[in-house]
Amino acid sequence: MFTPPAGRRIGEVWFDRDGDEALPLLVKYIFTSERLSIQVHPDDVQARAAGLAGGKEECWYILDCAPDAVLGIGLTKSLTPEDFAAAARDGSIEQLIEWKPVKPGDFYFIRAGTVHAIGANIALAEIQQNADVTYRLYDYGRPRELHLRQGQAVSRLAPYDRPALHANLGESRSLLSPGEAPFAVNLCHLRAGQATLPLDGRPLWFLPLRGIGTINGAPFDKGECWLIDDGDDVAIETDCDALVAAVS
């Protein structure tokens, strides 16, 4: 559960666990007022070759957005490494990103190597491998460090090729299957009085989007993230929609 500081605007809320052992997944709620940087993440093999613990694949579920909101995912055309590097240096990469119109309920899986950016005026839930590895390619002139050499080496220099998914609250469906990624994600619609979640010995990351209930007697509400294990008592008090994630 997260309680925002009084009088402060919050751009990201992270849900992780304190302690020496990091969880395999990290959940964030992201709220944008301007375009975020154009960036890319390595996969596990690429990250370990660079001396890092692991790579990062992530997914986005749009909670709310302005009517003209967009996500940048992949490129509008295939590029050579040389043309890609030049576009990142001179800023023309902004015109080579495919900016996709989005609406609440849209879901995108961002494979490692996918050049991407989150546009302005979007609220989304992000579920990702718990790795702090981002190669920033372009930042609209803001004075932050760029990682052009590392980013060029891991980027897929082509359009995004995975079909978009749309899932409204009230539906139950798989958004990301175990064979597609290191983790699976489902949108679940749970009826009042129902307490069945797909527990099979694995912990679940439970993100309530609508409705109320309790976990081990503690109330949950939208905008939170709970880690649920076998034996936890989940009670659904009103019809509830939630994103549910598990490690594959």
Results as ranks from 00 to 15, higher is better:
138 Y>S: 09
44 D>A: 06
81 P>R: 13
209 L>D: 05
64 D>F: 02
83 D>T: 14
212 I>R: 12
116 H>W: 04
148 L>H: 04
4 P>I: 03
220 F>Y: 15
212 I>A: 10
119 G>K: 14
158 A>T: 14
91 G>D: 01
85 A>G: 12
171 E>Y: 01
186 N>R: 15
155 S>R: 08
78 S>A: 15
224 E>T: 13
239 D>W: 03
246 A>R: 09
103 K>F: 01
157 L>A: 12
208 P>A: 04
205 W>L: 05
67 P>R: 08
147 H>C: 10
163 P>R: 03
160 Y>F: 15
142 R>L: 14
232 D>R: 08
127 I>D: 01
93 I>H: 08
159 P>M: 13
166 H>P: 01
43 D>W: 08
102 V>D: 00
156 R>C: 14
206 F>C: 03
115 V>I: 11
219 P>A: 13
3 T>V: 15
187 L>N: 02
155 S>P: 04
214 T>Y: 07
107 F>Q: 10
202 R>T: 15
8 R>K: 15
214 T>N: 03
232 D>Q: 09
45 V>C: 01
236 I>K: 01
112 A>T: 06
239 D>K: 02
227 L>R: 13
50 A>D: 13
73 I>M: 10
123 A>L: 03
216 N>R: 14
28 K>P: 06
109 F>L: 15
112 A>L: 02
147 H>G: 10
164 A>E: 14
208 P>C: 04
16 D>W: 10
141 G>C: 06
61 Y>K: 05
239 D>H: 08
107 F>I: 01
242 A>D: 01
124 L>K: 06
